[in-house]
Design a protein around this nucleic acid. Structure first.
Length: 409
RNA sequence: GGAGAGGUUCCCGAGUGGUUAAAGGGAGCAGACUGUAAAUCUGCCGGCUCAGCCUUCGGAGGUUCGAAUCCUCCCCUCUCCA
């Protein structure tokens, strides 16, 4: 089998490695690796997809991934990449989140028969005694060196408190602990984790005289320099309850041209030959690549059935022979009684979730961005009543691409 | 603990008694152009029962016809000193 490290390099997963040659050698044999995940929400969002995909590749290559839920470290708050302290979470909330994160992860990797493991670092971190920890672990850390780490240097400007300063030690301890108990020899993570990963490598060498390794992923920003995974509605979640498969598909198909090649490699499992072919498409042919990206990504996250539906809806709504009959787009049900007297358009837009406030809906329509069954709505308070429904539903559109179908219930 | 600086609308950041729902930038939204792309141009960008009204400038009081702007107390952050 091909060395997963080559796959990582070829697909653009690698930002830094502690030792390229040794890591490659390590990955020739089945290896245990780990990535830490924040339990701050009950769902992953697109920002976590890159690490998740890396675990997928690891497992496919016969390695054993460990997903570490940062229940213990979550109680502390990682200062890396943050300008402010993170809210501290309760134990109950973290456990609850961990449970649903595992479920979500199961879509991507197989946890059966310990082919992958999920652990919560609260299990060992919360048991630590302060004095013992200082004496056994703390003495291996040079404050001078810690301060020179990028993640702390930034925070030195804005302020860093002691609890956050300790985060590095805890994550280093995690790595050592996983090495000790699971023979885990590779930690991966976003590039903002580089310092923390190195700390674990160092600690383990000092404590055990053993070499373990680290690899970081590039921090993904879109080509416009913005952090990935945000839309006007907020984060793009992997949970279909929070972000429907249709919206998820739309998120991917709307990516900027220059990002497509990179994303095909990172977020799909298409063979690189296909990726290269799709990436070579120019101008409006890029749409084919975008559609493929959206389809494959939705498939991985929500399954083929949902991906088919999302693609069908997209083709209907945006294709050359536009139709308005699609069923898999977001929909909103409205009572018959509400319609009998008619409803001002802007109120319906708000109710259907296309606008956050009525004021926003007024503005949208006044500016010509409100459509009813694909015809522009002329005035914001235009009355909508049952006559506007065809076969029991009507199609609202905000701007060029946000659709909601409204059904009479 | 002492001395100083500061907390403004999603973010950064101006504003030091009325003309301020608050400059400017970023993000976001819409329109035009397009390929459900980018760039560009234009408009919008606190809420509402929207030509009017209501609520905002760390919190609570106070001065004033009128406060984000002045006073008092409190909370929080940063810098320097211990």
């Amino acid at each position: 089998m091909e060395n997963v490290f080559h796959i990582f390099e070829e697909r653009g997963f690698v930002e830094q490695v502690t030792d390229r040659g040794l890591v490659m050698k390590l990955l020739r044999e089945p290896t245990t690796c780990y990535i830490g995940f924040d339990p701050t929400a009950s769902s992953f969002h697109v920002g976590s997809l890159l690490p998740i995909m890396s675990l997928v590749h690891m497992q496919r290559a016969g390695h054993r991934p460990i997903a570490v839920i940062g229940g213990g470290t979550g109680l502390v708050g990682d200062p890396s990449g943050k300008t402010e302290m993170r809210p501290i979470m309760t134990r109950e909330k973290i456990d609850e989140n961990a449970e649903s994160l595992k479920k979500q992860l199961s879509r991507f990797i197989d946890f059966s028969n310990e082919k992958a493991i999920m652990v919560n670092n609260a299990d060992w971190l919360t048991r630590l005694g302060y004095i013992d920890f200082l004496r056994d672990i703390g003495r291996h850390f040079s404050v001078n060196r810690m301060l020179s780490a990028e993640s702390y240097r930034v925070r030195l400007e804005t302020g860093l408190n002691f609890i956050e300063f300790n985060y590095m030690l805890l994550q280093a301890y995690d790595f050592w602990y996983l090495f000790k108990h699971y023979d885990c020899r590779l930690q991966m993570g976003g590039n903002d984790q580089w310092g923390n990963i190195l700390a674990g490598v160092d600690l383990t060498r000092r404590l055990e005289g053993e070499a373990i390794y680290g690899l970081t992923f590039p921090l993904l920003t879109t080509s416009s320099g913005i952090k990935m995974g945000k839309t006007h509605k907020g984060a793009v979640w992997l949970d279909p309850e929070l972000t429907s498969p249709y919206e998820y598909y739309q998120y991917w198909i709307n990516q900027d041209d220059p990002d497509i090649a990179r994303f095909l490699a990172l977020f799909t499992l298409l063979p690189m030959d296909d990726v290269r072919r799709l990436s070579a498409l120019k101008d409006s042919d890029i749409r084919e690549a975008k559609e493929r990206l959206a389809y494959e990504a939705t498939c991985l996250c929500h399954g083929q059935k949902e991906a088919d539906l999302a693609r069908k809806a997209a083709r209907e709504l945006f294709g050359p022979d536009k139709s308005v009959s699609s069923e898999s787009i977001p929909n909103y049900g409205i009572g018959k009684d509400k319609l009998s007297d008619g409803l001002p358009a802007y109120i319906l837009f708000k109710k259907a979730g296309l606008c956050k406030t009525r004021g926003e809906a007024r503005r949208l329509i006044a500016q010509g961005g409100g459509y009813l069954n694909d015809r522009r709505i002329e005035t914001f308070d235009q009355t909508i009543n049952s006559r506007d429904f065809e076969n029991g539903f009507l199609l609202l559109r905000a701007g060029k691409k946000r659709y909601v179908s409204v059904r009479v219930t």
